[in-house]
Design a protein around this nucleic acid. Structure first.
Length: 953
RNA sequence: GCGAAUAUAGCUCAGUAGGGUAGAGCAAUCGACUGAUAAUCGAUGGGUCGUGGGUUCGAUUCCCACUAUACGCCCCA
């Protein structure tokens, strides 16, 4: 038997089927950095004078290995930057890191000891700097391995001297614009840190506390009774007290008032003998009365008078153990969820107490020092630690007969996120950016409405937050951070009159020598003889301020983008509505009156298969490093792209496996395209549209239309749609239709025939387009493909823009007609496939090429299918295909209705002809030629004749 | 407790501006091919659209409540 196999044009490519990404990707990385791909893209954009697209990177905190959330965030940014580049924008990407702050201090503290104790403050800061630099290096390597293309050699670090100076200058500008104020407010205070904490540094956990009821005796019984309505004329007997309930007995020394709700009903209750107490009257909210009495174990009580909370306003009561009269005040925050309906109020120890205290001009008393001990001169409790003082307070209360009741209660209580120890509220002098004094809140809200939020519910979310946002406390009493370089008059509390100039000078010094320049300097160096009268501030800035001014330091000062909003896009997790989006907004409004961004895109958080969040303790974390090592960065990137990131992003073994499956499908499709371009030189062999076959034109047009969709979808950042579109294209239009049909033509026709070159032209256009669609997502794979594609091309797919697919038709109408035509043919083909399958199941045929097909139909479909003439069999991939007018379809023909409502009948049967050993079609003319007894006529023609003509498929 | 969000086949996603047997790809099952071969092709099964109410002739789509999940906040005096 003659071997005709080498007369075929079988597919061939060196592009490997297996990705082997874990091994191969590092090779590509090496190349990218050797040729400085990022730099080349920048150069190209500059040459072409492209319009800018600025995605401003939110800095991750420089501590620890990157986790899957980091990977998601950076990959999404990278996809955007790359797709914008392909869309013809100049989209630089400057990555950043947040380098100051407590977590780093604590890591360094562990190794080197506490600043100012075992190691000097300046040495401590140097150690922090060194530690942060190492963390940055580690994270940077992981990000690079993910295939993120960025200005890695010139990132922005909030600890760069220049950045530190920029922070100071930004603060200076905010001060100049009148947003700063110095205040004394209760702030979350960790007695172990000896510092105030940011809200983000507080977490709630269960704690057991004493819960006590305390008498505040009413001084003027008559004044009280005149405000009440008596029940039966009698007003009872014994001392009268309003009873408060508290779980923080240690705050009682700072008590300045008792708050009641103006709308609540209060009862004066005659109780004879709560505990061992003499007959007395207690004031308790009516709604709480039975609960409270049950708690006190009192059954014998009687209400003697009533009043509204509002009636009690400004009534004086006696502090339980100090010689201090305090007022009863009104507050909407009083509830009847727990307690007695009367709330102990210490403005120095509670947010709400502070707020309500402001209205009544209560003293903000704070008798507690930085380590949580009562200050010298605090009667009864001096020197005691607040939590230990609870017991002492109880003793004093007992001794004074003021304790009504005592029990233990478990409740959620704020704890320090680092120390896990309970924190307190403590009023301290702090620096604030005011939301009101220069209209910051109002201006922020106006700016939010000007900004595009994606998804759009982000707008309502951040507005809600800004509306309720308290003044921003920007000061911290720590070491590792940027100073608030101010001098405060010791007597007046006012800032030094030359503050603007001083800030500038400090900024210059910091730019030269880092933050130590301020901390190590003498006051006289800046204010000369005034040093005596002024206090040098040693507070540092909240790290959220650092990152919050990145727009000014990086976009404005470094990149010269002085026109605000400077960034086209910020993209972070949805938690940053609270964090960076807000800190950036507030600072940029405070500085420039405009937001720093035009639009904000958010993504959700990664969760496991059950929708639970990932945590080390649950053991459900998916480490990006491991994923990359096992499957490669492109799989991780494809997973990111495939997931709708607007909600939670689920990762599980199954999902990753599915992603890898999809990847293989895409890779194989691309590989098959390449293998069919074997021997094709676009410069010589490419055909024009008018020379091409109908099916090939359809393929290019289909690709063109999909590309429009893909590009549009990149623009709306819906990458999961792109993933579906590309994958379905590979599996559907390509795999099960076009690529299956063109095999016969590719393999059997003459190498340089129009039939084959037409198909190769189409395939060439398709792969040129597709490699670019893939580039932002599977960058490694796309670049690998790039190197195996024929034709002259530059060093990387990323140095290009979207492929310009040629139009195949004279106009849109012709294109639409062709698309409709082929979709109808596809429908008929599906019916044929069903019949072939039945024949296969019956054991009469194996391959479809063993069958012949007869289609019976009406005039319309007959005309339609006849257009393909004798090439219909190639579309069906059968050996014969005949179309008949449906006069009397044979009984064995199966009936189908097309979506056009046309009816067809399909009959299939095993071919009775011999199989051509070359093309595998069963044809009548096999064996007719003595020279080639195993071949069919067209194969002989293809081997030694003119070659078989094809027009349609 | 409050706010905004999500909930459609085993998986990833469409869809329904109220309506007729809810779609795609993957996976699964069965089969074919052995000229995309650790690939490819074909066929098949699979969802009471989170739960419960309401409006309506009719709801997966509108309204309400609830549940679950992740996010942010408040409070816990």
């Amino acid at each position: 038997m003659a071997d005709y196999k080498d007369t075929l044009n079988l597919p061939k490519t060196d592009f490997p089927m297996k990705g082997n990404l874990a091994q191969r990707e590092p090779v590509f990385l090496k190349n990218w950095y050797e040729i400085d791909l990022y730099g080349k893209i920048r150069e190209l954009c500059k040459e072409q004078n492209r319009p800018p697209f600025i995605l401003h990177d939110g800095p991750p905190y420089a501590n620890g290995d990157i986790h899957i959330g980091h990977a998601v965030n950076k990959v999404l940014k990278d996809i955007i930057v790359k797709s914008k580049t392909l869309s013809g924008f100049d989209a630089p990407y400057i990555p950043g890191w947040d380098c100051h702050g407590l977590p780093i201090e604590l890591m360094v503290e562990k190794k080197k000891g506490k600043a100012g104790v075992k190691i000097s403050h300046s040495e401590f800061r140097d150690a922090c700097r060194e530690y942060a630099a190492k963390q940055v290096d580690g994270q940077r390597e992981d990000f690079k391995r993910l295939g993120i293309l960025a200005e890695w050699e010139k990132p922005y670090l909030t600890m760069d001297y220049k950045f530190e100076a920029g922070i100071v200058r930004s603060l200076g500008k905010i001060i100049k614009n009148g947003h700063l104020h110095k205040g004394s407010k209760p702030v979350h205070w960790c007695v172990d840190c000896g510092s105030s904490l940011a809200e983000a540094e507080v977490e709630y956990e269960d704690k057991t506390s004493p819960a006590i009821d305390v008498r505040f005796e009413v001084l003027n019984e008559a004044a009280l009774m005149s405000r009440c309505s008596s029940v039966d004329g009698a007003s009872g007997e014994g001392p009268v007290s309003i009873v408060i309930w508290t779980t923080t007995p240690w705050t009682l020394p700072a008590n300045q008032a008792v708050a009641v709700h103006p709308e609540l009903e209060y009862a004066v209750v005659q109780c004879d003998g709560v505990g061992a107490h003499v007959a007395e009257r207690l004031i308790i909210a009516q709604d709480m009365l039975s609960d409270v009495m049950a708690r006190y174990d009192v059954t014998d009580y009687r209400v003697v008078a009533y009043c509204k909370g509002a009636d009690l306003d400004e009534l004086k009561v006696m502090h339980p153990f100090y010689d201090r009269e305090v007022p009863i005040i009104l507050g909407e925050h009083v509830t009847t969820d727990a307690g007695t309906g009367a709330v102990h109020t210490a403005p120095g120890h509670g947010q709400e107490d502070y707020i309500v205290g402001q209205k009544y001009h209560l003293k903000v008393d704070n008798p507690v020092d930085t380590n949580g001990k009562f200050l010298e001169g605090t009667p009864l409790f001096e020197g005691q630690h607040v939590f230990k003082a609870n017991d002492s307070v109880l003793e004093v209360l007992k001794a004074k007969s003021k304790l009504v009741h005592e029990e233990k209660i478990q409740h959620s209580y704020p704890h320090c996120w680092r120390h896990k120890s309970p924190i307190i509220f403590r009023a301290t002098p702090q620096w604030f950016i005011s939301m009101e004094q220069n209209n910051l809140r109002k201006d922020c809200i106006a700016a939010i409405k000007e900004t595009k939020w994606m998804p759009n519910w982000g707008e309502a979310r951040i507005i809600g937050m800004v509306e309720n946002s308290p003044d921003w406390c920007i000061s911290r009493q720590r070491s590792w951070g940027v100073p608030i370089p101010l001098f405060v008059n010791k007597k007046t509390g006012k800032l030094h009159p030359d503050s603007d100039a001083i800030v500038d000078k400090v900024a210059s010094d910091i730019e030269a020598k880092g933050v130590n320049a301020w901390f190590e300097s003498e006051a006289a160096a800046y204010i000369g003889d005034d040093a005596e009268q002024y206090e040098k501030t040693m507070d540092i800035l909240d790290v959220w301020f650092d990152s919050g001014v990145s727009h000014n330091v990086v976009l404005n000062e470094r990149e010269g983008l002085s026109e605000y909003p400077a960034a086209d896009l910020y993209l972070e997790g949805s938690d940053q509505h609270r964090g960076w989006f807000q800190s950036s907004l507030k600072t940029s409004i405070a500085m420039y009156g405009k937001p720093s961004y035009k639009s904000v895109l958010t993504h959700g958080f990664t969760v496991d298969a059950k929708g639970q969040k990932m945590s080390k303790s649950k053991g459900n974390v998916v480490a990006p490093q491991k994923l990359i090592k096992n499957l490669g960065a492109d799989i991780l990137r494809l997973w990111v792209a495939s997931t709708d990131y607007s909600g939670e992003m689920t990762v599980s073994d199954e999902i990753v496996k599915r992603t890898a499956d999809a990847y293989r499908r895409i890779r194989n499709t691309a590989r098959f395209l390449l293998s069919n371009l074997n021997g094709f030189d676009p410069a010589k062999d490419m055909l024009d549209a008018d020379q091409m076959l109908s099916l090939d034109k359809w393929a290019v047009e289909t690709t063109r239309q999909l590309q429009n969709k893909v590009v549009e979808t990149y623009g709306s950042y819906e990458f999961h749609q792109i993933y579906q579109q590309i994958h379905n294209f590979c599996a559907g239009e390509m795999g099960s239709f076009y690529l299956d049909i063109i095999k016969d033509r590719q393999y059997t026709t003459q190498e340089d025939s129009i039939a084959r070159r037409s198909c190769q032209t189409a395939i060439y256009h398709i792969i040129e387009a597709m490699v670019r669609w893939l580039a932002p997502i599977c960058s490694f794979t796309a670049d690998e493909l790039w190197r195996f594609m024929p034709g002259k091309r530059n060093e990387s797919v990323l140095l290009n823009t979207w492929y310009e697919l040629p139009t195949m038709y004279s106009d849109d109408k012709a294109a639409e007609q062709s698309l409709t035509f082929w979709s109808q043919v596809t429908e008929v083909r599906e019916s044929v496939n069903k019949e072939l399958e039945a024949l296969r199941v019956a054991g009469e045929i194996g391959s479809g090429l063993a069958a012949k097909v007869e289609v019976y139909c009406g005039r319309e479909i007959l005309d339609l299918l006849s257009t393909l003439e004798n090439e219909l069999r190639f579309v069906f991939i059968t050996s014969e295909a005949q179309v008949y007018l449906a006069g009397e379809p044979p009984a064995e023909a199966q009936h189908y209705t097309l979506s056009s409502n046309d009816e067809i009948w399909v009959a299939v049967s095993a071919s009775e002809h011999e199989k051509c050993t070359r093309c595998w079609h069963h044809r009548e003319d096999v064996g007719k030629d003595d020279k080639h007894p195993e071949l069919c006529g067209r194969c002989i023609d293809n081997i030694e004749g003119e070659g078989e003509p094809r027009e349609h498929a």
